[in-house]
Structures are given as C-alpha cells and as structure tokens.
C-alpha cells in the first residue's frame, strides 16, 4: 500500500505543471525511497526524469513497489482543486485501479477527497548511463526562463555557446537575431542569484526553442537551474527539489 502525505499540495501542483505539456501519460513508480517518473515526449526528443524523494513527504510509506499509470491532464484537473497550503495525501492499494487524492485544509475542518482512475501504460524506458559533460552552468531559473522566452520570439532554434569566460544564448531568425551573454559571478548575499560556469571544453549546441520553453515550466520548483552540456550529446537541465530533482534530457539539433 502507498500512503504519501505532503505538508503542502504546492509541490505536486508545480511538478504536474512542469511536465504536463511535455508528456500526457506517465507511470509514477512508487518504492520505499519515494516516487520516480521517467517519460519521453511523443517526438522522442525530450525525456523527463523525476524523483520525489521520501523526505519530500511529511509521512510516507510504500510497502511494495506500486506503479500508478496517470493521465496528467486528468490528474492536473484534480490537483488544481486543492489550495497550495493544504495537506495533500495520495493513497493507493497494492494493485490499484485508482488513486485517492485527499486535500486537508490546515485551519478549517475541510477534507476534500478525489479518486483518479489509473491506466495500464506501456512506456518506453531509456537507459541513461552516467554521462560525462564538457560544461556545466548553474544560474537563476527565472533568468533562464526569461532568456528562453525572449529569444524564442525570434527563432525556433536556440543556440548555447559556452567559452571559458561566459555563456551565450543566441537565436537567428527571419526578421533578426538576438543574443544574451552571461558571465559567471558570485552573489555572496543571495547565492541563488549567482551564475557558475564550469567548462572543460568549449560548447556550441543548438536546441529546439519549443522544447526549452517546455523545460522552463519547471522554474517554480527551484530558484536555480543547472544546465549540463556535452558536444553532440543530449543536454541535461536540472531543477532540484527539497529531496529529489526534476531533470530534462534534450536531444540537440545538428547540421544536415
């Protein structure tokens, strides 16, 4: 049996918001260590890897591994009904046909209970071995979201160029070009505002802007985002959770 209680429903709301536009159906795999999701978008370009660790829950028990096949659009309709500050409890039997979603208001005696039908999903699982990256950038997630939104207005591709001194985000479209250059710096008072650039080898990669626009929907999960890049390889974008992470792997574009 699975019984997981969150101190606030806001974490789950943000997670669903962050992934629902990339994938529609996915298995939530529940183990004694927490909940994981791996899902690939229909075009096989973007992969989501989510870990909500046991410590993200106020109370958590999962005696046996349980898979919850969830339609995220339906789940989102239910999860939106809770207030962000409500307790959120997920309950499922060992071989469940549905999952119970319970919101409890902390001040009033109001308990809202919903049941979501589960699906039997046959999903591709991709083996991601430990990747070696040539460059790692950590920056404020809101800044990365703004750069993505701004440059996406010019072109359907977004280029990321990393040199020793800086990282350049660039787009080249029909009516013009744009770029944003960031240098690494340390903000002692607000560490989350810092920009860290670690580069072993220079990088020049191009990605589909629409996929990065979907990735930045994870912005509300974390103050900062880490971008890991390797030549001619998928990039990794990571938002850290209080205990766990939301990672996106994005395949690059290449010259034909």
């Amino acid at each position: 049996m699975l019984e997981g209680k969150f101190e606030e429903s806001s974490l789950m709301k943000k997670v669903v918001d962050a992934i629902k536009d990339s994938v529609k159906l996915c298995n939530f795999n529940c183990t004694e260590h927490g909940v994981t999701v791996q899902a690939v978008d229909d075009s096989r370009v973007l992969l989501i890897s989510l870990l909500i660790g046991e410590a993200s829950f106020e109370e958590y028990r999962c005696d046996r591994n349980i898979t919850l096949g969830i339609d995220l659009e339906s789940f989102n309709k239910i999860i939106k009904n809770g207030n962000s500050s409500d307790f959120l409890t997920l309950i499922a039997e060992d071989s469940p046909d549905n999952v119970l979603i319970i919101f409890e208001d902390k001040k009033k005696d109001r308990v809202s209970e919903y049941s979501l039908k589960l699906m039997d999903l046959d999903s591709d699982f991709l083996q991601i071995d430990d990747m070696e990256f040539d460059a790692t950038i950590t920056m404020p997630s809101s800044e990365f979201a703004k750069i993505t939104r701004d440059l996406k207005t010019l072109s359907e591709s977004l280029q990321i160029i990393v040199t020793k001194e800086n990282v350049k985000f660039s787009s080249d479209g029909d009516f013009g070009t744009g770029n944003v250059v960031l240098k690494g710096f340390v903000d002692m008072d607000k560490p989350d505002e810092s920009i860290k650039i670690d580069m072993a080898r220079p990088i020049n990669l191009t990605f589909g802007a629409k996929y990065i626009a979907d990735i930045v929907k994870g912005t509300s999960l974390s103050e900062s985002v880490t971008i890991k890049l390797a030549d001619k390889s998928p990039a990794l974008f990571e938002y850290k959770l209080p205990s766990g992470f939301l990672r996106f792997y994005l395949a690059p574009k290449f010259d034909e």
Binding site: F125, Q127, Y249, A251, D255, E256
Partner: peptide, 14 residues
C-alpha cells in the same frame, strides 16, 4: 539547415 536528433540515437531502450 538544422535537423532535430532523437534521444533514441543516444540512449538505449530498456
């Protein structure tokens, strides 16, 4: 002209 690659050319199906 740029071509979008697939994750399947980098990661194996399990």
């Amino acid at each position: 002209k740029l071509k979008q690659s697939s994750l399947l050319s980098f990661f194996k199906k399990k």
